[in-house]
């Protein structure tokens, strides 16, 4: 506020609450082509916790992920990242400080660079980092069973190999918050179990994790918090007990459909 003395310096709005460390969406609304995709959505991702975001297709889960990562700005609401809060719509004076890779996303479609091998995809973001980061990346490549495939190009790799590569690429960046969009969708049971143990070790390292998943069993085993999103609105939030005894009828119906499909 003191810097407003005739200066046109774009600054983020910083509220004096630095003790709050989390990634948070507060009353976020997003509208595309007149259609409300997110409606007053509030959700928080806390360090050392896994939040599972579940809900039917088209309910706005990926849009919420992008909004949280400040890749796609909400039309209304607030996004807080640790001690920085952005109010939307942004005023002309405000400027977003790029939060990446402090916050990073693993996309459902992987978004691997097609001209690089799987190993190069993982190593490119580490180009300006030390040998330790590369060693760590090699260890992750091995632990996720990618060693023998990592000299392949994305178009030569299977869906599961690409998905694991995208995950390793994000993990080696040591983010404080990692947002995972359906990262288990192309994996077999064994690989899902490997991912689960990695997520648990990330949680132990105090990393905040938000995961979109349709695997209710996976969410049950991994998550500390469950958020159910439907038609752009949060219908229910709670612990994993929500999966066993949901209060909302729509959530109950969704879970029973998934259960009967398994």
């Amino acid at each position: 506020m003191a810097l407003r003395i005739g200066l046109e310096i774009p600054l983020p709005v910083i509220y004096p609450s630095p003790e709050v460390v989390m990634l948070k969406a507060d009353k976020v609304t997003k509208i595309y082509d007149g259609k409300v995709i997110l409606n007053d959505v509030s959700l928080s991702v806390q360090p050392g916790q896994i939040t599972a975001l579940i809900g039917p297709s088209g309910s706005g889960k990926t849009t919420l992920l992008k909004s949280l990562a400040l890749l796609d700005y909400p039309d209304q609401g607030m996004i807080s990242l640790d001690d920085i809060t952005y109010n939307f719509p942004l005023s002309k004076r405000q400027e977003i400080q790029p939060p990446w890779p402090h916050v990073t996303i693993v996309f459902q479609q992987h978004f691997l660079w097609p001209h690089l091998t799987l190993r190069q995809n993982i190593m490119l973001p580490l180009k300006r980092k030390g040998i330790f980061a590369r060693k760590q990346a090699e260890d992750l490549i091995e632990s996720l069973g990618l060693t023998e495939f990592c000299d392949r190009y994305p178009n030569q790799a299977s869906l599961g190999q690409r998905q694991r590569t995208a995950l390793v690429r994000a993990l080696v960046l040591e983010p404080a918050y990692i947002l995972l969009d359906e990262v288990t969708s192309s994996l077999d049971v064994e690989q899902v179990s490997v991912i689960l143990s990695h997520l648990q070790s990330l949680r132990e390292r105090n990393i905040g994790i938000l995961i979109i998943t349709h695997l209710i069993g996976f969410a049950n085993r991994a998550a500390d918090q469950i958020v159910f999103l439907n038609q752009g609105e949060v219908l229910e939030t709670g612990g994993v007990e929500l999966l066993r005894s949901p209060k909302h009828e729509r959530v109950r119906k969704f879970l029973s459909v998934i259960e009967s499909a398994m």
Binding site: W100, T104, I105, F107, F111, W113, P114, L124, P125, A170
Partner: peptide, 19 residues
């Protein structure tokens, strides 16, 4: 999507252009 992937990996604009 390749620019978005570079962004979320914290790759600079110049490195995104070059690599």
């Amino acid at each position: 999507q390749y620019n978005i992937a570079a962004k979320v990996c914290g790759i600079s604009g110049l490195d995104t252009l070059l690599f």
